[in-house]
Design a protein around this nucleic acid. Structure first.
Length: 573
DNA sequence: CGAGTTTGACCTGCGC
DNA sequence: GCGCAGGTCAAACTCG
């Protein structure tokens, strides 16, 4: 069984990577004070050790409150601060139960319930020290309430900022896409003409139509993902190649049929595709979407990272040039889910686990799975919507660059390599240049120049600056930014700075590393922008139009057709 | 006994 | 046409 071992993203729900609002790498809500039955609860994330540690370490007001509270009832113990804090934190997590354990909790609760009683007690208490302590308690109580109100206020502010942030991101992405569309309008119009003529002449070479396909890929797939199957019939366009149908269809259909073998509803057999136009569109877009891959490189000793999804292994192969076998998994969380992934260790550094995701989940995901799924989906959509070749065959990375570039690092690499455009999220953050020594095919760029391999350093061989620009633009950061502001990310940073930590004995760090890295990615505004682009694409696609809806050839038929043929042409090259 | 894994066979695309 | 490599299938096997 692969599940539950190795790296995990499952604590993403506590971080809330992909909540309905931008995430900043920490969960605010658990810190809110809760009042229950007169008891002031000190909220602590019960499941997060690091969270608890983070709470207990700083000399914040909460801590002082807790300290005083416990101090009052721990006269016999004369506890050291650290001990007290620990107990208080524990009590926070388990409320009454732990309070009972220390035999003072219940009374503490009672004493804490109101300042009036404290005042009365002050008057009646013969013990001066006790009186002073009660006064202090009352003061702390007031302070606590004040901080509670402040906390609420901050929460509201944060929510507002988050909302504004989301709106701005969406707006920015929309503007960028509109700008992108305006630039390619002329080309697209020509492509529409070509497309129509090509529909009448299936054997015609795809040629300049290629560019449009990627533009439409993401929305089409998104439409599929949203279960909004509104597209018109395009069954004859299902073939993914510009070659004649009778030539390409048998193999492709067979493949599709195999992939959606009997067990899967969403992967209908071939004949079904021909009969059901909606299904055909769904299939074609799905197949097209599957062409976009997101590769995640993370350090793990475990055979597979745990990303919250359920996977079933359906094959294993020895890949050339890598002594480690490549395992093939498919998602089993829902029948017919097209998502698959390949897991393979890096040949150069076997502590690096390369997980390549392909496809988009067509079912609800648990919070634990949302992190990786959204990451890969966003990255794939980002790639498909942004790395579209222009009419002259040169990759147009404007949108992609603008989405990603502003804060580039070694975090991610986007390669529109044939046959599969791939986004590589490198969560290893190792300065080791070996991390870029992947199979050359993955980095072959369909430029009108000989394929080039991206290198971690400027490579003169990259086509006349463009390749280098793409390389530079194809990276986005987030990890480093978040490292500074995220405790978990700090763990990741430590691991990256100290490769020794990746040794087996440092295994407990691996999950933290990946989680932190994912948190960093998702907390990164740039990534959020990319995600926003993907979401906007999905939304646009579900509305019978996509993010490129300003383009003249945005008719659903054309979109699907383009998607298919684009991919086909792309794959053919 | 069902679900998942293993593993050899098969299919397809691609380069020579 | 042939061989290679990637990807998938499915029967056999394992495990809880």
């Amino acid at each position: 069984m692969d599940r539950g071992c190795g790296l995990t993203l499952e604590n993403s729900d506590q971080v809330g990577f992909f909540g309905n609002k931008p995430v900043f790498g920490f969960n605010l809500s658990p810190r809110l004070d809760h009042r229950r039955d007169g008891l002031i609860m000190f909220p602590v994330n019960s499941s997060a050790g690091e969270e608890t540690a983070a709470v207990s370490s700083p000399p914040g007001g909460e801590q002082r409150i807790v300290l005083g509270e416990v101090d009052f009832f721990a006269e016999k113990k004369k506890p050291v601060n650290g001990v007290v804090k620990k107990e208080s934190s524990h009590a926070e997590a388990s409320t009454f139960r732990d309070a009972d354990v220390i035999n003072t909790g219940l009374q503490l609760v009672t004493a804490n319930t109101g300042s009036d009683q404290s005042t009365v007690d002050d008057v009646m208490s013969p013990d001066a020290e006790d009186k002073r302590a009660r006064n202090e308690l009352a003061q702390l109580q007031v302070e606590l309430e004040r901080m509670n109100a402040e906390n609420q206020k901050l929460k509201g502010m944060l929510t507002q900022v988050s909302n504004n942030y989301s709106a701005l991101q969406m707006h920015l992405v929309t503007l960028m896409q509109q700008q992108q569309n305006s630039r390619t309008d002329s080309t697209q119009e020509q492509e529409v003409v070509d497309r129509k003529s090509e529909e009448n002449k299936p054997a015609v070479n795809g040629g300049p139509i290629v560019p449009r396909q990627f533009l439409d890929l993401a929305p089409a797939a998104a439409t599929n993902q949203m279960a909004d199957e509104h597209s018109n019939s395009l069954s004859e366009e299902r073939t993914l190649s510009g070659s004649p149908h009778n030539n390409m269809e048998p193999s492709r259909n067979k493949r599709i049929g195999r992939e959606e073998s009997p067990e899967s509803e969403g992967w209908a057999p071939n004949k079904t595709l021909k009969l059901n136009s909606t299904k055909a569109v769904d299939q074609s877009t799905e197949a097209t979407m599957r062409k976009a891959r997101v590769s995640v490189r993370a350090r793990s000793e475990a055979p597979m990272i745990s990303d919250g999804c359920q996977w079933r292994k359906y094959g294993q192969k020895m890949a050339k040039g890598n002594p480690c076998p490549r395992a093939y998994y498919r998602c089993t969380m829902a029948v017919g889910c097209p998502v698959r992934k390949q897991v393979q260790r890096c040949a150069e550094d076997r502590t690096i686990l390369i997980t390549t995701y392909e496809g988009t989940h067509n079912h609800p995901l648990p919070p634990a799975a949302m992190a990786m799924a959204s990451t890969t989906s966003a990255a794939a959509n980002m790639l498909l919507s942004g790395s579209m070749p222009s009419a002259d065959g040169v990759m147009n990375t404007n949108f992609l660059a603008r989405t990603i570039l502003p804060c580039s690092s070694n975090m991610a690499t986007i390669s529109a390599s044939a046959p599969f455009p791939t986004v590589t999220l490198d969560l290893t953050q190792t300065p080791n240049p070996l991390q870029f020594q992947r199979p050359p095919a993955q980095f072959q760029v369909p430029f009108p120049v000989p394929p080039q391999n991206f290198a971690p350093v400027p490579t003169p061989s990259v086509p006349q600056g463009f390749g280098q620009a793409l390389y530079n633009q194809s990276k986005f950061s987030g990890l480093q930014m978040s490292q500074e502001s995220n405790d978990a990310a700090q763990l990741q940073g430590q691991s990256s700075k100290h490769p020794q930590l990746h040794q087996p004995q440092a295994h407990p760090l691996f999950s933290d590393t990946l989680s932190a890295a994912t948190a960093a990615i998702t907390a990164d505004p740039n990534f959020t922008a990319a995600l926003a682009a993907a979401i906007s694409s999905i939304i646009g696609g579900s509305n019978a139009n996509n993010t490129n809806q300003s383009t003249p050839n945005n008719h659903p038929n054309v979109n699907t057709s383009n998607s298919n043929k684009t991919c086909g042409s792309f794959l053919g090259n």
